[in-house]
Design a protein around this nucleic acid. Structure first.
Lengths: 119, 119
DNA sequence: GATGATAGTGTCAGAAAGGATACCGTCTTG
DNA sequence: CAAGACGGTATCCTTTCTGACACTATCATC
């Protein structure tokens, strides 16, 4: 469980990469995280920012991210309910990963861009 | 059957990230990619290297990785069949992403203690 | 003749993820 | 009074992923 001893990638069961992936595995999680890197957002803001995700799914993903300690959830007990989501320190530490993923995506998106519907 | 597997990458800045994630999303894909960073491997080698994955699942994951252009598959038409898998250039370009994931995992694995009963 | 190694494929089945839809309570606005 | 915004829940459903298991073909070996 301590650090993997090889400098090269090690893929034993329970490897660190798998663990990291498991946290951002989810159809919308990385999108959520990305939006939150810009700053705090309310639930409805996220919903509008990510068209195509249903309330239920968004809630689920947020709950999982929260359970994994990647985001913080602040509830304001006021009459029109207000809930703010923001990155935790742990979530912010994920930024390099997201950056690497984004860099890769940006560099290679065109390769398979044709294989998708126009939408 | 290799196209609509990936969700649409049309929208936000997070889409590139989503695209990248979708390629390594799969229970064993990053494990496979890691093993292949060491060099070419045969099917049975991978199978032995990754205990816990079934033949069928391994085949599926390899097929998807191949369909996504991350790995190359070379079939040698000889009597005991021989198939070698190796990273493609695209697959190798994913290395920084895997490295970032591994770095994050190494740094944070202890935080959330996804303790695996690993030797 | 039987068995094993190789690299799969085919079928079945369960789990999990995600989507559709409806509903909740409160308050404000029309 | 009714509708809408807010941040969800609850229920149902479908798709997808993954595992278990059996089966194939060829050749070498026992």
């Amino acid at each position: 469980m301590s650090k993997l001893r090889h400098s090269r990638f090690d893929c034993a069961p329970g490897c660190a990469v798998e663990a990291a992936i498991s946290l951002i595995d989810g159809k919308w999680k990385c999108v959520i995280l990305f939006h939150l890197t810009d700053g705090t957002m309310r639930f409805s803001e996220l919903r509008r920012a990510i068209p195509g995700v249903t309330q239920r799914t968004l809630t689920n993903q947020l709950r999982e991210l929260e359970a994994d300690g990647l985001i913080r959830r602040e509830v304001f007990a006021q009459v029109p309910p207000k809930v703010e989501y923001s990155l935790s320190d742990l979530g912010r530490s994920m930024t390099p990963v997201l950056a690497a993923l984004k860099a890769w995506g940006d560099a290679n998106l065109d390769r398979f861009a044709m294989a998708q519907p126009e939408a």
